[in-house]
């Protein structure tokens, strides 16, 4: 017998279940317990760049909206800097780059306000197009799903993006592109997530 490798195994994932709100968004579950709920303000008041809203629904394989989803966003600021000690550069005071939202219990709509991220340096010196990383959990989702939101007004950068380029089927790349529109003077990007079936969103093993 060779020596044993002494690595531990990662704790296995389990579904967040239908009542994820109790732990991560108790106000939505119907009670007030914490002084501050986490994740409602992604960019903070001082962040530079364009103020945007990203919104959508998550639909299942039958095309029905899923109404017990929790999504978390992780993004760089407008200069392409993540609020993390290992990423070179500074972020604005109060810029966190992280947020969480839930889908509406009746409509399944979700949305968050933030700033549009800048391009981020990727591997091998290749620039990544502006994007927001999303992590999606829900009842019936056994391991959280990772995807990315890209922006429709960044067609050139998207075409050169090394992660987009990994997606062999060009037709599927469009599932990651949020459509830009203006509503009441605000910039709104629409990003619907399809868990299964026609137009299934690209999910990543990161």
């Amino acid at each position: 017998m060779p020596q044993r490798l002494d690595y531990l195994k990662e704790t296995a994932s389990q579904t967040a279940g239908p009542f994820v709100h109790i732990g991560l968004a108790p106000g939505a579950a119907g009670f007030d317990i914490y002084e501050r709920e986490l994740g409602w303000d992604i960019a903070g008041p001082n962040a530079g760049g364009e103020r945007i809203r990203v919104e959508g629904v998550v639909v299942d394989g039958t095309g029905s909206p899923v109404k017990d989803v929790l999504l978390e966003a992780w993004q760089a600021n407008a200069q392409g800097v993540y609020a993390h000690p290992e990423h070179d550069g500074e972020v604005e005071e109060g810029f966190r780059g992280w947020g969480r939202v839930i889908t509406d219990f009746d409509t399944g709509e979700w949305g968050f306000d933030t700033v549009k991220p800048g391009p981020v340096m990727g591997r091998n010196g290749r620039m990544m197009a502006p994007h927001i990383n999303l992590w999606i959990v829900a009842r019936g989702v056994n391991v959280g799903l990772n995807t990315r939101v890209y922006f429709s007004d960044e067609a050139e950068a998207n075409a050169a993006d090394p992660v987009m380029g990994l997606i062999e089927w060009e037709v599927r790349r469009q599932t990651l592109v949020a459509e830009r529109a203006e509503r009441d003077g605000k910039i709104v990007y629409r990003f619907d997530v399809r868990l299964q079936g026609e137009g299934e969103t690209v999910f990543f093993d990161i």
Binding site: W98, R139, V141, N142, V163, I206
Partner: peptide, 30 residues
């Protein structure tokens, strides 16, 4: 996982796209 019925319509059918990690994956909220 068919015996957990809710997973049936909520599970992606295509394979996940495997990424080599960049700053987007190596960083995270503090």
């Amino acid at each position: 996982a068919r015996e957990y019925k809710t997973s049936v319509a909520r599970s992606p059918s295509y394979a996940l796209i495997s990424l080599e990690q960049s700053a987007s994956e190596i960083t995270g909220p503090v």
